[in-house]
């Protein structure tokens, strides 16, 4: 690769962001790319499945210890993926957003990413864009493409819409643009349709749908990615396809987020559809998705 590709992955907490990101990193490394994954979440559990379930010391741990030793911030994971965790304060104290800013500044100012010179850097960022700190990876000069992971849950889409507002805000000043939506935990056709419709209404695109799968859960419990734990599974192929799509995706969008009330109105119509579908299923009539667990 001539130019380093830097992407950020956002999405509501618990939606499968770190799972998707780690599988994406693993799949990219299988495609012979040098990958660095930077977890931007004070829980510092972004890269654990790349490290056989073992946590790593965080950038913030180093800051806190007052150590000037910056050679123990990057740890090797599955197939040579470079793993970094920004880290942050204990729950309920301090400011996690400032922690992310400080960690990224530290990595940047000390040339840590440049020294390793990966082909691809992936920032896995906590939940919603709740404050300026969590918007740092999408601001000028860090990530250039943003992907967002969402299910068809209203609150997950709501978080995506908020992220779009953040991207829109920084788009005029050289910030990252949207690479696409990754639909996750998909088990029904109507869920796909809902996410697709959202992408059309916001003038964006869906780069991949990742079905709900027990293989993912099983591998996570074993402390590994699906790519590592079940390389021959259908699910692993989905992640590999996602990786190829990300590599080939040269498009970037300035999204057109919904206003809050418009989003609620839009979601209401879709949720009725989903409920109707569930009812049909419950009454013994199979839905037409053909996909599922």
């Amino acid at each position: 690769m001539s130019k380093r590709k830097q992407i950020a992955i956002y999405g509501k907490g618990g939606i499968g962001k770190s799972t998707t990101t780690s599988n994406l990193s693993a799949a990219l490394s299988d495609l012979n790319y040098s990958v660095m994954q930077i977890g931007c979440d004070p829980k510092n559990d972004s890269t654990t499945t790349l490290r056989k379930g073992k946590p790593i010391p965080t950038v913030m741990d180093t800051v806190r210890s007052g150590s000037n030793k910056l050679d123990n911030l990057v740890f090797e994971g599955y197939n040579g993926v470079h793993c970094v965790e920004a880290g942050g304060p204990e729950p309920g104290v301090g400011c996690a957003g400032r922690g992310i800013i400080a960690a990224i500044e530290l990595l940047d100012n000390n040339g840590i990413i440049d020294d390793i010179d990966p082909d691809i850097v992936i920032y896995d960022v906590l939940g919603d864009v709740v404050c300026g700190g969590f918007a740092i990876p999408i601001r000028q000069g860090i990530a250039e493409q943003v992907y967002t992971v969402t299910s068809s849950d209203y609150m997950a889409i709501y978080a995506v819409n908020n992220l779009f507002k953040g991207i829109l805000k920084y788009s005029g000043s050289g910030g990252a643009l949207l690479g696409g939506i990754i639909g996750n935990s998909i088990s029904k056709i109507s869920q796909k349709e809902m996410i697709t419709d959202f992408s059309e209404k916001t003038e964006t695109n869906v780069i991949e749908f990742v079905p709900r799968s027990s293989t993912v859960t099983k591998c996570e419990l074993d402390g590994v990615t699906t790519i590592e734990g079940a390389p021959d599974s259908e699910q692993a192929e989905v992640y590999r396809q996602l990786a190829r799509n990300v590599i080939n995706n040269k498009d970037s969008y300035i999204p057109k987020p919904f206003e809050a009330q418009d989003l609620a109105d839009w979601a209401a119509s879709w949720i009725n559809n989903l409920l109707k579908e569930e009812k049909i299923e419950h009454d013994g009539i199979r839905s037409g998705s053909g996909e599922g667990i």
């Binding site: 913030m60 800051v63 806190r64 942050g88 304060p89 204990e90 104290v93 301090g94 400011c95 996690a96 400032r98 922690g99 400080a102």
Partner: peptide, 9 residues
């Protein structure tokens, strides 16, 4: 900055 991130208590 350390106190901003980890709290100043």
């Amino acid at each position: 900055e350390e106190h901003v991130i980890f709290g100043g208590e």
